[in-house]
Amino acid sequence: MDDIQTRLQKSSRATRQDYFGKAICYSCIGLIILLVACILYFIASKGLATFTQNGVKFWNFLTQSDWKPGDVDKYGNPQVGALPMIVTSFSVTILAALLATPFAIGAAVFMTEIANKKGAKFLQPVIELLVGIPSVVYGFIGLSLIVPFIRGIFGGTGFGILSGTLVLFVMVLPTITSLSVDSLKSVPMHYCQASLALGATRWQTIYKVILKAAAPGLLTAVIFGMARAFGEALAVQMVIGNAVLMPKNLISPASTLTSKLTTEIGNTVMGTLPNNALWSLALVLLFMSLLFNLVVRFIGRRGNIKNER
């Protein structure tokens, strides 16, 4: 009697398995959160030191355009104005994403809905290959092909936002495409079947049903693409000119947050203003990508049909 009772009251093997599995997953996500928190804390503590310890005014940091952290201006204030870099980072990222998205989604639609198996099978590994090319190689190809090309067409030196955008376009293309393919694939087959059965053409099905159902996934793909563009340094630095100047147009030399960060961080001494100021750039970068993220999410939330699996 007791035996049966304890057996009934004890959690079954399946339940225990469930707990076990849950525990693993929760600890994994916990680990990631811990990691994110660590990095955020690390960057915030270093980045905020510019304002708390070195007494730089936050507003000046955001709105001035003189970047020479080692020097002071005639009033004795350190010259840390990040505006040109913020503007450039913004424009390069948005332009690259705007340019790459139609191509990437077009390619993804092609691979999932239109092409026969062979076409998709060929395209996918090629696209994945591109992710593995080191950014330095992109940078040098940009320097030897794109920069002279831009110089030939638009004049000037060829270094500038436009060259940066074109290089980034190629670099974010694989990321956006692969993630888009995944989210298009996750649209349930019966949506597509239902639409076609109603007499819709293929394009109507793609445009009105599949793309809408996959919208959140596609947006995530774009976010990851933009994130890559934002964080890319070595390649952009070579083709954008890397000059802390307010960009006058798309072909005047400029500098992004990351390219400045990467060029100078090795030459600064930890704990001094020039070093802290660079960490502040990293902090700005984080906030900007957070902003992008929220905006894209907000857009995504509107006009998306509820996606059930």
Binding site: M238, N242, A243
Partner: peptide
């Protein structure tokens, strides 16, 4: 413009 490595500077000067 600013660059931090000799190799990159050499490449830029030789092509610009």
């Amino acid at each position: 413009q600013e660059q931090d490595s000799n190799g990159t500077v050499q490449k830029i000067v030789s092509t610009t």
